[in-house]
Amino acid sequence: MNKFLETYKSDIIYVVIVLVIVLALYILTRVLHKWLHRKLQEHFPGSPVKSINLINRILKTLWLVLGVIALSLIFIKTEKRTDFIDYFKLFSYLGIISVITIVAITIANIWFNYKINKTNAANNDPTNYKFLRYVVIALISLAGVLLVSLAFPSLKGVAQTALGGAGILTLIAGFAAQEALANITGGLFIIAFKPFKIKDRIKVSDSMVGIVTDITLRHTVIRNTENRMIVIPNAVINKEKLINYDLGEHKSCEFIEMGISYESDIDLAKLIMKEECENHPLILDNRTLLEKKDNKPMVRTAVIELGDSSVNLRAWAWTLNYADAYNLKCDVLESIKKRFDEAGIDIPYPHRTVLMKAQD
């Protein structure tokens, strides 16, 4: 036994040192993980801790892998140790770059979330911060991937070229024709020219109306009146003609249109439409002082078309915003219909005349 210890004394000391270092690093990682988790919840309540947990797992796995590689050095021949030392360096490099990248993304996320919450609390527009968060995280992730690529000989040339100034331009030019870059460019245009921002109510098509909830590098998300999330690529939404109900004045003019039969009393129908609109609690008096002085009606009504089977009337009803306009329209369409029925005003509906040919 003494002879064995004497013969392998240096190896035993080496194994003990490696095990102690791995165990110390493992314990230190666990302690730091708990400390960071507690500090995050103290200073940034509600912050996501998935990245902290991921770093914890990566570091623990890294210490285990490096420990195994270090212990394996005593069992292989001297001439082959170079390869294992290279593996040791490779895993160390990959682990460090991964941790640094995740830490950078986490810090960026925490900072941008803090600024977004602060902006929301002040009732300001958080669109710029939300979009820049995606840009910064994408750039950090790209830099991490390129740095990891440097560790592999087959990818090293590509990574070095991409990390250079000319390489970045070449990389961008290579993706210029791709749909991904078109969406990113579309997102940048939205942020720069602000046709809409987060919390704006927009109308992208006749059936696509909702509130903008997010603008990412790839797409814009709007929540429609059915509480469904609609995802529209930035390249698509930039080409669409859209209505922004919150751009400029929020006041909205709603067209209340009804068709009556040619035999019905037009003046009475216009009066009923005017009264129902003016009596609604959401109506807005949009008249100027001069119009009020001249006793102009709050709600204008007029014949807008003589159709094939109906006289089409319109009332111009103003409200404070689009949501009020929609609610007013729903209410007064019902109340006008009831008043028309009481007054004997007919609303025409399609008729079809069928001619039966007599059989000889």
Rank of each mutant, 00 (worst) to 15 (best):
R228M: 14
V231G: 04
R218T: 12
I230Q: 13
D265E: 13
I232S: 06
S261G: 14
L271S: 13
I230Y: 11
Y245Q: 03
T216E: 00
E254D: 07
E240P: 03
R223Y: 01
E254A: 12
L242N: 08
E257M: 12
G259S: 06
I230D: 15
L247C: 03
C253D: 08
V231F: 06
H250E: 11
L268D: 06
R218W: 06
N238T: 09
K241L: 13
I272K: 02
M229P: 00
I230W: 12
L242T: 02
V221D: 07
R228L: 14
P233G: 05
A235D: 01
I243W: 00
D246N: 15
L247A: 14
L247D: 13
F255K: 10
R223C: 02
E263G: 10
L268Q: 12
S252L: 02
A269V: 03
K251P: 00
K251F: 09
V231P: 03
C253T: 11
N244R: 06
A235V: 01
K241Q: 14
I260W: 01
T216N: 07
L247W: 10
S252R: 05
E257N: 13
S261H: 09
E249V: 02
E257I: 14
D267R: 10
D267Y: 14
I230E: 15
K239Y: 01
S252C: 15
D246E: 15
K274L: 01
D246Y: 08
N224M: 06
F255T: 06
F255N: 09
Y245D: 03
N227L: 09
L242Y: 03
K274I: 04
I266R: 07
F255G: 01
M273Q: 08
V221W: 07
I260Q: 04
M273L: 15
I256V: 15
H219L: 05
N227S: 04
I222L: 14
M273Y: 05
K241M: 08
M258P: 01
N238D: 06
G248K: 12
V231T: 15
R218V: 14
R223S: 01
H219I: 07
R228V: 12
E226R: 15
H219P: 00
A269M: 01
E257P: 03
L217Q: 04
T220P: 01
N224F: 11
I256S: 02
H250V: 05
I215P: 06
I266G: 10
N244Q: 07
I232R: 08
M229W: 04
T216Y: 05
S252P: 00
T220Q: 09
D267G: 01
K241I: 15
P233F: 07
L242P: 10
Y245V: 02
I215R: 00
T225F: 11
D265W: 06
M258E: 12
V221C: 06
